[in-house]
Design a binder for these strands. Structure first.
Length: 465
RNA sequence: GGCCGGUUAGCCAAGUGGUAAGGCGGAGGUCUGCAAAACCUCUAUUCUCCGGUUCGAAUCCGGAACCGGCCUCCA
């Protein structure tokens, strides 16, 4: 079966066909860098990483753009309060964001354009919309005229007249023709303080939606393959992107729209007032491995709400350890006779893994296939039926799967000399039958994050997750 | 009010017509100086409830209950 995705715009599962053979251009909605990102945000970025990695697994060359929103109301407020430069303020959270991406094993996109570096491109697109009659000026600002785009609502499947109007319309927006029209350009007012750009549109700053339209066009062209984000982006953000982009270019904006569901914590919405609001740092600060977080975020299908619990995180950690141990145990296999059962296991693992992920990125199913392979291969290993050659192929398979899953350690780690000495001391103590001392050293190593395994072939170590 | 998901074992979670994947936890066991680590075995006669279609339904249709999300700058 071919690769297929649920397309939010059609609500159908569609076969994926890229515009250019063998190449995918995708845009993924990135963070607003006004604070540390929380694990709900990272759920989206891990989903996008899964998409990216799997497209590569299937042989595509991927060009991914992730925007960094470095201008919005909250940023302006903080910049004024702290009396520092815009970039000085956002750079600290930008740096933290990339640290977190690395910790979670998220591959880097090809481009991370920042909104404030693309004011010219945004202004140009807004001028085009004005010329074509899709936008109008009012009181120093520029608004998109929704009534000029009859297809408005095609992504979210909402009708304009059904929208409950009024609740969040700011007082300064009374100049708009229609309450649903949204800002492309916001004229400067005193609340903006030092944050503004002098442009042909006047003094002010861009609206939120326009950055994604302008930057995706610049780096991916007027039509590209996939646009993604969290479900909350469907309306209004992505709906507005479509309106701006398709009115400006006259072409289809993105062919496939993929949205991941929200993460909830212990069964309820994550919020600061409930005290269940977590950044990645909050969690790693409790001693959890970011890789366990990655696994947990990955292991629920992206279109399902994910219930984040610390019990679940413990489970994720144990699951990752099982994979790591499996790979390591394979490397100790020493056998001359190939198992007659093994080739079928290997075949099933490869085909099962791909079939699941081909079907709208069913990561849970794919992990199930991997663990079936682990269990069956472990059984052969325990019965001493696995050959060195079988084991080598099993390692290759796990490594191949991990190019998508991304939880195995990247390189063989080496030990500090003092830790190695402790291991040697313990070995000596065991040989002297001084088990009290041996166990004490073992406990000491455990506290340092080193777990020892006494196997028939000697003592091996691993790093605790 | 409009739109969208969900309800599967103690917990997490796949499965969209052919008789319940997987992970964690738990219980046994192998190995071991060991209560360590690793590994093995077992662990849902049943899929929120009520009707219906069908030879056959967790899966399709109708209805109910409960949970969650979006409805103008929140991934």
């Amino acid at each position: 079966m071919a690769l297929r995705f649920i397309n939010t715009r059609t609500r159908q599962k569609e076969e994926f066909k890229s515009i250019d053979d063998g190449k995918v251009r995708m845009y993924t909605c990135g963070p607003t860098i006004y604070d540390f990102a929380h694990i709900g945000n990272f759920r989206a970025y891990v989903f996008e990483d899964l998409l990216r990695r799997y497209l590569k697994y299937r042989g595509y060359e991927v060009t991914q753009v992730m925007n960094l929103t470095d201008i919005d109301d909250k940023i302006i407020r903080s910049v004024k309060e702290q009396n520092i430069g815009l970039k000085d303020y956002t750079n600290q959270f930008k740096a933290a964001f990339f640290e977190d991406l690395d910790a979670l094993g998220i591959e880097r996109a090809e481009y991370y354009p920042a909104a404030t570096d693309h004011i010219d491109e945004m202004v140009e697109m807004i001028q085009k919309l004005l010329t074509k009659g899709h936008a109008y000026k009012a009181d120093g600002s520029v608004y998109f005229k929704i009534s000029s785009f009859p297809q408005y609502g095609s992504l979210s499947h909402m009708k304009l007249e059904d929208l409950k109007a009024g609740a969040r319309v700011a007082a300064d927006e009374y100049e708009k023709d229609s309450v649903s029209d949204f800002a492309l350009w916001k004229g400067w007012d005193e609340a903006d303080g030092p944050v503004f750009w002098e442009t042909p549109l006047g003094k002010g700053r861009p609206g939120w939606h326009i950055e994604c339209s302008a930057m995706s066009t610049k780096y991916l062209g007027e039509t590209f393959d996939i646009n993604t984000g969290g479900v909350d982006n469907i309306f209004p953000h992505h709906e507005n992107e479509i309106a701006q982009s398709e009115c400006a270019s006259g072409k289809t904006f993105a062919n496939y729209w993929m949205h991941c569901e929200h993460l909830i914590v212990e069964g309820t919405k994550m919020s600061k007032s409930l005290g269940n609001f977590y950044t990645l740092r909050d969690i790693t600060g409790k001693g959890y491995s970011p890789i366990a977080v990655r696994y947990l975020l990955l292991s629920t299908h992206y279109r399902q709400q994910l219930n984040f619990t610390f019990a679940g995180l413990d489970g994720a950690k144990a699951a990752v350890e099982r994979l790591v141990d499996f790979r390591r145990n394979l490397q100790a296999v020493d056998g001359d006779t190939d198992s007659p059962e093994f080739p079928a296991l290997l075949e099933q693992a490869y085909t099962g893994f791909q079939e699941c992920l081909d079907d709208d990125l069913n990561a849970s199913g794919a992990l199930g296939e991997v663990f079936n392979f682990v269990k069956e291969t472990n059984r052969l290993m325990a019965d001493k039926k696995l050959s060195t050659s079988d084991a080598k192929q099993a390692v290759e398979a796990i490594d191949k799967f991990d190019t998508v899953i991304g939880v195995l350690p990247q390189a063989e780690e080496s030990l500090d000399d003092d830790i190695q000495k402790l291991i040697d001391d313990r070995l000596a103590a065991r040989q002297d039958k001084d088990f009290a001392k041996a166990d004490s050293i073992r406990d000491q190593l455990l506290e340092m994050g080193i777990v020892l395994e006494d196997t028939a072939k000697g003592t091996v170590w691993k790093r605790k997750l």
